[in-house]
Amino acid sequence: MPISVNDAPLLAAQSLGLVRGGRELFHDLSVEVYGGQLWQIEGANGAGKTSLMRILCGLSRYGFEGKVLRPVTPLYLGHQTAVKALLSPRENLQWHVSGAGLYSDDQVDDALARLGLRGYEDVPSHTLSAGQHRRVNLARLFLSDACLWLLDEPFTAIDKQGVDETQSLLASHVDGGGAVVMTSHQALQVSCNVNTLNLVQGVVS
């Protein structure tokens, strides 16, 4: 279903440049993300992928050149899961500090079930494994109604089946008119087109 926001970019980065520790990570990087696009940012460790993501989502505000326009509030999933060990997965999602919508118990349970966490809704999160923490965090993708998803290494510590399911979720989000910008070292196997931004070679394709 095409949506009206397709004409305007959901995220526009204009001539971004970043120098860290005397090394230029990228310069004059411009990118526009429209609804219906999936962007994968590639680069070796230390190439500046996470720094770029933090600039794009707005956590880094100083120390770089260029500017970022964000007409919509993005959903950002970072390296850290933001899952509180003392709260249950359900409480974590319902009372999330990201300020997203108010979800009913059923919505949250449904999202958790889709990520294989049925039966774990009410246990304290500190009894869950690292991968399950990541899954609780990924459940936000099912609940969120944000157009733009900024995902930094979403597949870390996720098993193979989980990776496949997350990829099909990304594809259906893009098909529905949303946009995804993500970093990953894995080759994506999704049904939609993948735009690649390689930070080392500076190639946008």
Partner: peptide, 24 residues
């Protein structure tokens, strides 16, 4: 694994978020 609300994106841009009091 289908998204529950494929059309939710168009809604999302209107930002159905809790207002400040609710969030606090």
């Amino acid at each position: 694994m289908q998204r529950q609300h494929p059309q939710s994106c168009s809604r999302g841009c209107l930002l159905s978020v809790p207002h400040t009091g609710q969030f606090c």
